[in-house]
Structures are given as C-alpha cells and as structure tokens.
Amino acid sequence: MRLRITGALAALLGVVWALTGGASEPPAGPARFEASYTWQFGHDEFGGLSGIEVDPEGGSFVALSDRGRIFSGRIVREGNQITRISDVQTVPLRDDKGNYPPRFYPDPEGFARHPSNGRYFVSFEGFTRIWHYDPAFSIARWVREMPNFRDFAPNGGLESLAIDQRGRIYAIPEEIPDGQPGHPVYRLTGKKWEMPFRLPERGAFLPVEADFGPDGWLYLLEREFSSLRFRSRVRRFLIDGDRIVTEEPVFESGPAVHDNLEGLSVWRDGQGRIRLTMVSDDNFKFFQRTEIVEYSLP
C-alpha cells in the first residue's frame, strides 16, 4: 500500500521521525538482528521499493518500485554487515503490449520469483491483477484472475505474493475484503484459484509481503502504522495441504526501529541460518529512507 501523506502530515512526520528515528529497542522473537543499511542511488525514480528478491546465496538482488521500475544489483557484505550496494542497474516495467505505462499507473506491490523457471511475478494494487515477466522484464504476461479480485479496496488489494517449491502462487490482500476473520490466502494451482485457508490476525498489523523460505515455511512480513511511526513483524507458517499446521513468531520491532519495511526475501546463508532480507518503501519522502534490513534465525 502506498501511504497517502499530505503536505501537513509530511511536515509533522518529518519532525516526529527526526526525534524518534534510529530507536534501538530490541525486537521481540527468536530472530537476531544482523544489519541495517541506508541505500542511496542517484536516479530520479529511485525509491518506493515494495518488493525484493535475493538470490539463494544472498549476493545479487532484484527490487521492485511502486512506480513501476526494477532496480537490480549486488549486496556487498563484510561479515554479516552490509557495506554497500554495487553494480546497480534499472529498467522500467513494461505492460502486456510491451509499452511503458504512465507514471504512477502500475502501483505494483507483491513480488515473487518462480523457483524453477526464474520468472518474476508482480501483483498490482490499484487495478488488481498479476503479471509475470522473464528475467529481462521484456514484456508482461497475464496470470489467470480470480473473480473477486475486483472486489478489493483501491488501496487494499494484492499486497503480498509468494510461490512455493511446487510453483503454486499464493496471493494475500492487505485488507480483508469480505469482513470475515483472518486474512484470506488465494492459491493458484495450475489454472485453478482457490482460498485454502486464512492467516489469523494478531493485533493491528497488516500483511505487506510474503515469501517461502528454503525450509518450506511461509514467511509473512507485516506492518503497523500508528502514532506516526512504523512497526514491523514477521510470522512464519507451516502449511500442510489446505491448512496451517504451525504458526510461529519470528520478530516484532518496536516503533521507529525500522522504516516502512515492505519487501521480503528469505534465503539460507553460508552458516546454514535462515536469513530475512527486507527493504523499505520510503514513499518518496525526504524524511524517510530506503533501508535494507537483515535478520537471521538459528
């Protein structure tokens, strides 16, 4: 979701975040904080990153902007610390006719990479749909729609995408469209959409991205925006067929510990630990930042 921030609210947020930014309250949960890096890049369209996919070794990445642009490069580390982002390249997203849509039209949010063919899948929130691209992002191809995708609120549609090892697509809206308890999870198997289960709500957090880890668990990144500050949380779920077998907390940050984390990629590092790489959407505001954050699980 792109936050709608007016000029007056922007000024107030700038003051609040200047006073509270860099808070060091340790997160709750078993995950260990590893790194936080503020990424700056001299391009007019840089910012608004709502999705990220990291390669299995954690070196190269592809990130998605909600203005319809792809940024790719390498994450350079010394030990567990991120020291710089190198070899950055950028291309705009094309539509299904090979054209570049007008600025702000796409509003892409969910981002996932297919584990077997390397194609990238993107869900769009304003005009709800899912497209997929080859690794060069040369042209968009449609993914079969589910009829109720048109029922989502304009700013509460398909925010999260994940693809399991069998190639099944999981799509999760940010807002619950039917008033029932739990966030619905839509799954595409072959050419058939279904809603096998719902993710239980815990507090005021809303889902913003998901990813299947190499351990087979579904990881869910969530965000809460209150008191003019962001909080982030990750839960993971063990799925068996059409049901959730286990739900576990991974981490939950305090207010203003991180910026507006919206992208999530889960991989295994050289020490055998599950690593969560996340990126923040700065909403193209001067008082926010594009932050790459990493946590690990033993």
Rank of each mutant, 00 (worst) to 15 (best):
D211C: 06
P181H: 15
E145D: 12
R268E: 15
G167N: 14
N260S: 09
R166A: 08
P30F: 05
L297T: 01
R289G: 11
E209I: 08
H183M: 10
P154R: 09
Q165M: 04
S50Y: 13
R77D: 15
G156S: 08
Y37F: 15
G272S: 09
V234T: 12
G110P: 04
G263T: 14
F205W: 02
R113Q: 13
D215F: 11
Y37I: 10
R268L: 03
D269M: 15
G7F: 06
W217D: 13
F197M: 15
R77T: 12
F212T: 11
K192N: 11
R141W: 15
S65I: 08
V143T: 14
I82R: 09
R150S: 06
Q89F: 05
L206G: 02
G110E: 14
S50D: 09
F212W: 03
T246C: 01
E194R: 04
L220D: 07
R94Y: 13
W39S: 01
A136H: 12
A10P: 13
V15P: 02
F212K: 12
N99D: 15
E252W: 00
E294A: 15
S72L: 01
Q165C: 10
Q81P: 09
S280G: 09
T246L: 04
P154W: 03
R231L: 05
Y37W: 13
E145M: 00
E294V: 14
F137E: 07
P181F: 11
L188N: 06
M146F: 09
P173A: 07
G22H: 01
S160T: 09
Q40N: 15
G21K: 02
D66R: 08
I244H: 02
P298N: 04
L228Q: 01
R94M: 13
R235F: 03
S296D: 11
V76P: 06
Y219D: 04
F124M: 01
V15M: 08
F237A: 07
P207E: 10
A23P: 03
A136W: 10
I139C: 02
I85P: 01
F237D: 03
I70M: 07
D282K: 10
I70P: 06
G59H: 11
E262T: 14
E45K: 14
P173H: 02
F286K: 11
T20W: 02
G48F: 07
G29T: 15
H258K: 00
V62I: 14
F237H: 05
A10T: 07
S86Q: 09
G216I: 07
M278I: 04
V122D: 10
P200R: 08
G47I: 11
